[in-house]
Amino acid sequence: MLRLFRSKTPNEPRSRFEAEALPHLDALHAYALRLTRDDATAADLVQDTFVKALRFYDKYEEGTNCKAWLFRVMTNLFLNSLRNRARIAVLEDESTPGVDLEASEAVAGQGFYRDTDAQALDRIVSKNVEEALGSLSPEFRTVLLLADLHDMTYEEIAEIVECPVGTVMSRLYRARKAMQSRLYDHALKEGIIRKQVETTSEGVPSLDAFRRRRKVGTGSAEAE
């Protein structure tokens, strides 16, 4: 059967490309579904990714991480198409100071931490992860998926989304905190957990606890 692949034809680069890239189609399809949250848009994105990747195949170094390269092409297409169509939901938000948001997210994390045991946490996360993920901005969703689903390092993610490693750290931090915040809200709403207000020995809300939460918020702001 080796003979089949010996022929030197105008389609040979495509054949090599297909042999290397097409095995990743399922992973890219799943990733596209997560990014776009729509079957038809995901299929379009996958097709455009492969066509664009083939077009720039000469830029790809054979033997390097083809999957990461394809993810990079797809991520860029996805984020650029959103930007081009000016359809990005108001990001939470890289253009606005993140202190307040992060404080509230960090507080949610603290609430989660305080009010939830390990079993409840698993249950809450598995039940609501899709919805919480969908509520994230595309930029945050992208880094979260690359890190927590596809096990990529910060450096790999930085290459894929074409931004500095520091931005990846910041986005990932905020994406996880935002997930905690959304999941905590879900859990409260569904009565899985009950909000406990830290009180002093006199039974009034604790200023110390409030200050601790603010401290957490400020700390996370510095992470930006």
Binding site: L121, V125, S126, V129, D148
Partner: peptide, 11 residues
């Protein structure tokens, strides 16, 4: 929990 849930619900 998050990583586990993402894997379990991955399309």
């Amino acid at each position: 929990s998050l990583r586990q849930a993402l894997r379990a619900t991955d399309p």
